[in-house]
Structures are given as structure tokens and as C-alpha cells.
Design a protein around this nucleic acid. Structure first.
Lengths: 343, 343
DNA sequence: CCGAAAACTATGCGCGCGTAAAACTTTTTA
DNA sequence: TAAAAAGTTTTACGCGCGCATAGTTTTCGG
């Protein structure tokens, strides 16, 4: 080889033998340069392998091909799954994505938004922290950057919202459990971090009251995002203190349920709907591992694919029409009951 | 308010009443400007809330405060955990991090490296795909950007390597299982995606031979990163075909084990070391959920904290000394056996 | 084969910022 | 109190690239 590596578009244009803006045009749309020029560029590309600096590109572009994706906590498999689905679809649509996690912290979410602004994305898919979010900061951000909210709505913020309908989640689980046995108590964190937890609690209470039943909350202590552990410890204590008013337990989310199931296993409480079983356990989210718990977990799940598809679709429309919708829409996707062995 | 939002450092400097470079100096080191200037800037900061564009900053800085982090598959909880630990430590050290996932794909890893170059990071912590990586691309990248390899070594590439010692993993698990019962067979993917899987297989074979025992591989089909499912389906088939030569099963990694445990539960094969148990199952990694499987999973785990600490420490040293080490080091961290209930 | 329209390439400037060196203050020293 | 030293700020230029516009070539009808 011997030749030194090409450092920028200028140098690359020089070895091709055209001007830099021509190369720039090529990268924006290869069809926009003459065929002879195109082949010259592509030959040089083959030989030296140059790629424009994506951040310098974005700096000054009218409209970038970037989409920012923000989730509240990436180490949570549910959000990892959402992020991945969304990311894949954006890439398929010809966009470049940048993924951020707020790590469950208000300050980090703000910082993420600042960095995102600097990226000048064409649009952003934002799953906010929710209750912990700095609403004013979110609002300011959404003023400046075309944003579709995911997973957790915040009133008036974002050009659109796409997420699962918590009512649909809880009503299906409660309805199923009630129909096939007794009504469930609701196992949750007293002070939950998941963005939709409060909404699910509210829905549970309303639905139970709608059925003329007494809501039964079993709220356990614990901060942060280690839900399995919180569920596990909480369940052990609740067993010890006999705080479960029924043998049918509906968990706010699957990760709590995973902890609960571990506690049940350890205590020898058989879970399932069979005759030899002491407890029925159901939950919400359809966590990637819900099929592989013991017993497998009956849960009301997101349709991750539809969620991602609609979210991305809506964002692309938004980008298409210049970043503002006439009317803000909220799409609540209905969840689907996934019957497995735990209830 | 009424005042319009400040868009760049120029505008901000104007409202402060100093020149832009002075503001720039302030952001690089607040102590480098006169106290009176500093308070003026900070007052304006309080009032208008300006933050410099981080990507424009990096464009031209001698040495950025950015660290790039790359993992092969972010939706894998083990890598999510590693990424998070590493990220936290970098931030504590005063750096800004950018996280990338190769999503298990060779092309995406290359793209990630290209984007990373454009970010001009001070250094990179790279957990490569391994076997699937484009070695030449990795080598070229490491030539240009100070890089510490994580998790999976690739000979001669990167200024340093920090990772877990697969020998230490497998020898401890095999030793423990053999000592407390019979020698294990090795449950794995025939064509594994995890970067360290081949190494673990090799170690298993060597260790067994070293003990004068016959290695027993149970290799199951399956592509991609859905290891739980692969483990589950593989185990069901292996049970049906009576392919497990022993009742002691050592899984290549915890996610396979989670699938295997689900299959055991479903088939009513009691797992554990108690008298009523049909199988013992152990594994490697100490997956975040390994405590919450049924039964809880005996595993040989990474010390995530030490791994992250040493990786970051080594990278900071590397950055300190200008991006090149005199001698390339490989640190193999020994794993630790975590005894739980499954074996 | 000419000239106008179409297609393409080059020039020049801007994006938001860092940085070296020059110009200016302030402080210290004689 | 003037001159030198030290500390600050400003001037001027550069990073890698997009974009508007001017300039050049190609194409094609007549």
C-alpha cells in the first residue's frame, strides 16, 4: 500500500481528481453525479476506503438522516427489546440511529437531550423516564426537535405518542384471572421506577372497583431498577407476614414476577393453574424471558413489533411533513394476553 | 422570558459581554478565566442555560473527553451489565461516553468503528464480536484510536486486553462439579455467537483430558443471540434423544442454562444437589438473573466491577501516556464460583 | 455544425467550536 | 512611577463538511 490513509473529503477528492463538493454530492446521492465521475469515485473508494465524518456532515445539513432513540433504562430487557426493534426499523428506513439511555436518572435524561440536540437529528423517539422527568426540559426539547413519545405519554408533549394501553393490559389480566378463578391482588413497588407503573396501579384499582370488587394492593419497598430482587425480597417478606390476601397475584411487571416466582420456588409454593398449585401468578410486559421462567409466565404483553412499527412510522410521517403535525395523536396499542403456565 | 433561546457560543458570549474564545476557555477550565469574568459567565449561564455543542467541540479539540464503548450485543444482559459498569466508571472519571452495539453483525461492527473514529474519542473500550469480527478493520481502527479490548482478546490487537480468564471459569466449574459428584457434560451451541464460547469449549476439553476424563459435548443447533430459546429447545430435544451422557450438566453460559432450566422444569426433572434431584446444572457468567432462576443457578461469574474497573483504569493510563503502551498487556481476571441451588 | 438548454462541477462561504499567537490589562518589580 | 512580568482577552485561522451560486461542460434540436 504505502499510501497514507485519507483523512478527509478534500484529500479523497484529490486522489479521485474531482472537487470536494462533487464527492459530497456523490455521498448524498450517487445518482447525482455523472456516470464517469461516479465510477472514478467508486474505484477510489474501493482502493482507499473513505467514509465522510458523520458528525461533520450533520453539523450543517438542512435535514440529517439521523434518528435519536432514548430509553429510560437500557439494562432493562424490556427497553432493550423496544430499542432494538425501533433501531432496526429506522435503519431499514435508511436512517442512522443513535441510542441513549437515561439510566433512570433525571439529570442524565436532561444531558441526553442536550447531546441529542447537538446531533441535529431529523427526529427523535423518546421513551421518557415519566414521573422522574423534568417536564419543562422535555417540552423545550420537543419544541426544537421533532419528537414522538414512546411507551409513556406526557400530556401535550411530543408531536405524537405511541405506546401500549395500560387499561388494555390490566383489564385483560384482571378479567382473565377473575374469570378463571378468583380476583387478583396487585403486586407492585410502593415507589415504582417503571414509567407506566402508576398508571397500571390506577387502572387496577379502577377495574376492580368497576367489577364491584375491593382492590388489594401489595406494595413492596425498594428503589431503583433491580426489580427482580425487589420482587424476590418483597415476596419473601409478604409471605412471612401473610400479606397476600388471595392466591392469585397480578404483578405490575414481569421483572417483579420473575423475582416473585423465584421466591415461590424457594418456599415450595407451587405456581400454576393445575390442581397441585398453591398460587397463580400473572403479570404485564411479556419480558423476553417470560417464556423461560418456572413455570412459564402468563402475561399481558406489548406487541413489540407493532409498537416499534407504529412509532417509527409516525416519526417518519412527522419528518416528512416538516416536524409539526396538525393534530397531536396518541395511539394506544392494545396488549395481548399470552397464556402460559403460571396462571 | 421573552428572550429567544441562545443557539451557539457566539450568541452566548455576546449576552455575557466577552468574546467567544473566552467563553470557550471557561468551558474547558473555569479556573482559566478571571474571577470577574467567571461570575459574569456563570450568571448568564444561570439565566439562559447554554451548553456547547459537544460534537462541534470534539471536531477540533486536541484531546477530547470522550470515551467510546462498544459491545457485541447490547440486548444481552451480560453485555448490558458490562457496558453499564464501564460507563459509570468513565463518567466518574470525568469523561463523556458513547455506547455502541454491534448487534451481533460484522458489518455493523465495522460501521460502529467508523462512526467512532468520527467522534475522535480519547480512547475506546471495545468488546469485539470475536470470531465474526473483521480482524483487519479492527487492527486498522486500533492503529488510529487508543483502544483497550474487553472480554474477548484478539491477538496483537488493541493496546491492552482486560477480560475474564476462560480457563479460570471452566476449571472452577468442572473442578467443583467433579469434586462434589460426577464430571459434567458440556452443554453448548454447535455454532456459538458469544465471543468466548469457543474458548470455553476448548478449555472444557483440555481440562477434562487433564483429569483423565472423556470430554462429553452436547452441542445444540441454533443461530443468533436468543440463547434461552436455543437452550430450551436444545434441551428438550436432547432429553428426548437421551443425549445427555451424565446427570451433571455444565452450560457454556447462563442464558443457555436459563433455557435448560425451563426445559427441566417443564419435564419435571428436578434440578439441584438435594436427594430428590435428577440433575445438577451449572454455568458461566453470573447473569443478572442467575439468582432468580428456579432453582437459583450455580455459576462461575465475572467480577463485573473488577472487569470494569481494570478496563477503565487501563484505558485511562493509555490516554495518559499518549495512546501507546510500551508493551501490550493481557489481563485475565479470575472468575469466582457462585454457589447457589442448581448444583 | 451552431447555439441554447440541460447537466454537471467548482468557488466561496457558513456551521459551532478549539487553539496559537497577538494585543491588551493588571500586577509586580526596580 | 515607569518598566517588566504575568495574566487575560481577542484576533485570526482551522476542523470536516453542506449548500447556494456561479461557471463549465455536455447534450440535442434545428
Amino acid at each position: 500500500m504505502g499510501e497514507k490513509r485519507i483523512r478527509n473529503m478534500e484529500e479523497f477528492a484529490a486522489v479521485v481528481g474531482v472537487s470536494r463538493p462533487t464527492v459530497s454530492k456523490y455521498f448524498n446521492d450517487p445518482a447525482s453525479v455523472r456516470k464517469s465521475t461516479r465510477t472514478k469515485i467508486e474505484d477510489a473508494l474501493e482502493k482507499h476506503g473513505f467514509r465522510p465524518n458523520i458528525f461533520a456532515m450533520n453539523q450543517n445539513r438542512r435535514l440529517t438522516k439521523n434518528i435519536g432513540i432514548v430509553v429510560p433504562f437500557l439494562a432493562d430487557p424490556v427497553f432493550a427489546e423496544i430499542a432494538r426493534s425501533v433501531e432496526r426499523r429506522c435503519i431499514e428506513a435508511g436512517f442512522h440511529t443513535t441510542l441513549f439511555s437515561s439510566h433512570g436518572e433525571r439529570e442524565l435524561e436532561i444531558e441526553v437531550l442536550d447531546n441529542l440536540r447537538a446531533l441535529r437529528p431529523a427526529g427523535v423517539l423518546l421513551a421518557p423516564l415519566g414521573r422522574k422527568s423534568d417536564i419543562d426540559e422535555l417540552a423545550r426539547f420537543c419544541e426544537e426537535v421533532p419528537t414522538v413519545l414512546l411507551d409513556r405519554p406526557i400530556d401535550g408533549i411530543g408531536e405524537a405518542f405511541v405506546g401500549s394501553d395500560n387499561f388494555s393490559f390490566v383489564s385483560q389480566s384482571v378479567e382473565y384471572l377473575t374469570r378463571t378463578g378468583e380476583a387478583p391482588c396487585f403486586f407492585e413497588m410502593k415507589n415504582p421506577s417503571p414509567p407506566n407503573a402508576f398508571s397500571r396501579r390506577r387502572q387496577y384499582i379502577e377495574i376492580m372497583e368497576g367489577l364491584g370488587l375491593e382492590p388489594m394492593l401489595v406494595s413492596v419497598d425498594g428503589e431503583g431498577w433491580a426489580f427482580e430482587e425487589i420482587g424476590y425480597n418483597g415476596a419473601l417478606r409478604a409471605f412471612a407476614e401473610r400479606r397476600f390476601p388471595t392466591d392469585t397475584i397480578l404483578c405490575s411487571n414481569d421483572r417483579l414476577a420473575i423475582g416473585l416466582l423465584a421466591a415461590c420456588y424457594e418456599k415450595g409454593r407451587r405456581v400454576g393453574r393445575g390442581s397441585g398449585c398453591a398460587l397463580r401468578v400473572a403479570s404485564h410486559d411479556d419480558h423476553p424471558n417470560a417464556r423461560f421462567t418456572c413455570p412459564s409466565l402468563t402475561t399481558v404483553g406489548h406487541d413489540y413489533d407493532v409498537l416499534a412499527a407504529r412509532g417509527v412510522e409516525r416519526l417518519l410521517e412527522l419528518i416528512e411533513c416538516g416536524g409539526r403535525f396538525e393534530i397531536r395523536t396518541e395511539e394506544l396499542l392494545s396488549a395481548r394476553l399470552v397464556l402460559r403456565d403460571s396462571a
